[in-house]
Amino acid sequence: MLLNLTIFLCLVFLGYVFGRHAEKKHFESILERENQYKALLAFSARFPPADMAISESKLVGGTVVISIDYFKRLAAGLRNIFGGPVTSYESLIERARREAILRMKEEAIAMGAEMIINVKLETSSITKGAGDQVGAVEVYAYGTALKH
């Protein structure tokens, strides 16, 4: 029992320290790159602007998989009992979404595009149904990159 408790506390502590550090660094990096790529516009509109002369259009996409840490998992598990917003997962999904869009933008920038239209996001759980595993989420962002 004592051994179980020790392992458990270590996992929670490690999860908290490393998870929080990783999240902080990731958000910093996301903000920096979002600023860097802001000239490239991205929309969910299905059609290009009517006055835009398009020389090239191409499907671009970016995907990312982010794993939760033991602390987040425990916090979410506690939330399962009492109900309410699962804040520990909210930041996880937010990071994944923004990172996927950034990776999609990187591909569009590489081809010299000015705009991405019809942007869509897909989310899926990698470890769905496997109760004993630490969960991971995959977000895929894709759209049509347009070049003048």
Partner: peptide, 25 residues
């Protein structure tokens, strides 16, 4: 066409995670 900067803290709670955690615990 423009992409406006979305303010931070809309989708993610700014509350310290340990605060929520200790209340739940």
């Amino acid at each position: 066409y423009e992409n406006r900067q979305i303010p931070e803290g809309i989708n993610v709670s700014t509350e310290h995670p340990l605060k929520e955690f200790s209340a739940l615990l």
